[in-house]
Amino acid sequence: MTDGQRLAVAGATGLVGSQVVELAQAAGHEVVPLSRATGVDLTVPGSVGGRLEGVDAVIDTTRSPAMDQAGAVDFFTRVAANLGAAAHAAGVRRTVVLSIVGVDRSQDYPWYVATLAHERATREHAPGPRVLRATQFHEFPGQVLDRGRHGDTAEVMQMPTQPVASREVARLLVELATDRTDGDVEVAGPRREDLVDLVRQLVELRGERVRIEPVPASPSMTAGSVLPGPNALVRGVDWETWARATAASGRL
């Protein structure tokens, strides 16, 4: 494959998808955004229409709006089937889907059951499927804090993590969609951390008064199932460097 390709980005307005769009355009690629904001509901057969005509690769960064296992599995499998059918019909050669490191080892956690279902459905339905598994993003501690917060306390899972900058993940998705290599890839940040410690640091950087209550994660995650393997790519800065820079910019 060569530069100046036509790329479709599913989930183009999300955390990673929006950065994929920006980075792909900056690299000289033409981007076809696929999201509800652009009139595409990927859970509905035929919603893509003719948007994939002339597209070289599809990058799937979709995220289920449902957090429960059944709802998320349903969302991901329908999206993969509909997107795959449209891609095959348009002659698309490659599909890169974003997943999570350790999903196959973490099937005692409902969200990871759904994420693995997304991988499998993409492999079944999409042309030229390729999976990028990433560790948790640097934004993850903030998401955990928001979801677990009840007044002045917040419950946070006690688990190891090796977080990576979401922008590096977006950059790698573009690389995998446009290069000449094949095969799945893992990516992680440079430093192993403890999630509870990261959330406590985040609260301090924000100047908030929140008491963090550690709670057990699933057995597999407690044992380190979401940590990267020895062959994972290491990209970007560590969490603290990212967090301090983000706080200085007023965006933390």
Rank of each mutant, 00 (worst) to 15 (best):
A170N: 06
G54P: 04
T2P: 09
A89T: 13
M157Y: 12
V97Y: 02
V16K: 00
S99T: 08
M1Q: 13
A89E: 14
L195A: 00
R192T: 15
R244C: 09
A114I: 04
S64H: 03
I212H: 07
V31W: 00
M221D: 05
A10Q: 06
T222A: 15
L132A: 07
I100V: 15
Q201D: 15
E240G: 06
R171F: 01
R244V: 11
R51P: 01
T2R: 13
L172T: 03
D182T: 15
A70E: 15
R130V: 06
T135Q: 10
G49A: 10
V156Q: 01
G17E: 03
E155M: 11
D194A: 10
R206D: 07
T43V: 14
Q201Y: 11
P160L: 08
F75I: 09
T181F: 11
D238I: 07
A117E: 09
Q107T: 11
V203F: 01
G128H: 08
A57H: 01
R133V: 07
A10M: 11
Q158F: 05
S35W: 03
S106H: 07
S225R: 01
T13D: 14
A70G: 13
G236C: 04
A177N: 05
A24H: 07
S64T: 10
M157A: 15
D3W: 10
S47R: 08
D146R: 13
D152M: 12
R235I: 08
V21R: 02
P160Y: 05
A188D: 06
R244F: 06
T161M: 13
E240V: 14
